[in-house]
Design a protein around this nucleic acid. Structure first.
Lengths: 191, 191
DNA sequence: TATTTAAGTGACACTAGTGTCACTTTGAAT
DNA sequence: ATTCAAAGTGACACTAGTGTCACTTAAATA
């Protein structure tokens, strides 16, 4: 019907992600994004009215992808096995935390689309929380988790362990292994 | 000799901290700071040539303060006692992590003063690292810490535990208590 | 091949930040 | 009281981002 697109949504989201993770929400500009996509700034306005709309669309995309990948994890294995897989998974998603941080920074939506996106993002966020919650419940049912630690704390620690940047450049295997050991001997019952 | 200052360095650093923690490095402007200090933008330029100089000065101030407070902690008690005090201390300094994050964002210094500040900040950073390292060594000497966990990992986890924001608004006592329990039963030897 | 239509452009008017500087204010010292 | 130097101001010229829009380009289809 018309001419070819010079950039895909995926490409735009990828560049947006890098810009936001590197510089933060406030420093994100259409100019920087346009130059990375090698198009004029004006062409981006064909798809997004403003920064908030673009970023809320990006966040929706990222969270949907995260939830979809998370859903593919083995849900039938026993808790210790799933725990292992979950920590591994979280480390393949190490930038999801940067994405979650941005959610708090979205200002009051300026367009209907940004408003819809914002409520969709909240839904995804709740869904993400509930899936992690279900995971902790499994650990309790199997009698693996120390009873007196409240779910919200365990959840908080697992959920946010991804926020810990590996400043000291410790090899990934060792880093993940030690986190698994510290978390599991900290959270699980031992005999 | 001359007229009274309308703002102190401490006041300026306090407002700078709030602005940077809230909006990030890139979004910090002299205009915002001036309006918080209730002075004209021009007057800030009397003391700092530009943003980098101001922020590097602020970081120096913050790290010096952190190191000084850290130095006041009891260094004679046994390791488990010091561990307790350290975690408590870290939580009173919950925004130090935001400050450390900014260090990585300082661009190439544009003035001699900014350059000097940058190298002073590196010194402080190293000193901070070494003090934490000495703390871990104490734990090893006392035979409290699991031998096979490398110092750098333990250090990394303690040093960066402050980065974990309490998203779920769990009461502080419970939050800190659980972190202490998970960390200590994860890192310490049990019999 | 001509037509259609979405994709893309770049110039325009606007807003907000930067760094500078001649000028005014003010309080301490003579 | 006068002096004077540091503190503070606000206007100026500049840079960089925003959002818009009439216009051009190019791929699909009739």
């Amino acid at each position: 019907m018309a001419r070819e697109r010079k950039f895909t949504d995926e490409h735009l989201f990828q560049e947006t992600k890098e810009l936001i993770i590197h510089d933060g929400y406030e420093a994100f500009t259409f100019s920087k994004l346009a130059s990375r996509l090698k198009v004029s700034r004006g062409s981006i306005y064909k798809y997004y009215e403003n920064k908030d709309e673009l970023i809320s669309e990006f966040l929706m995309y990222e969270m949907a992808r995260f939830l979809s990948d998370f859903g593919k994890l083995n849900k039938t294995a026993d808790f210790p096995t799933q725990f292992n897989e979950l920590i591994d998974f979280i480390f393949t998603q190490s930038n999801i935390y940067g994405v979650l941080e941005i959610i708090g920074q979205i200002p009051a939506p300026t367009t209907k689309r940004a408003l819809n996106n914002k409520s969709k993002i909240s839904e995804y966020y709740i869904s993400m929380y509930q899936q992690f919650e279900g995971f902790i419940e499994l650990g309790r049912k199997e009698g693996v988790i120390k009873e007196h630690l409240p779910t919200a704390i365990l959840l908080g620690m697992i959920f946010q362990i991804i926020a810990i940047p590996n400043h000291f450049n410790i090899p990934e295997k060792e880093w993940i292994g030690s986190i698994k050991e510290i978390l599991s001997s900290g959270m699980f019952k031992h005999d």
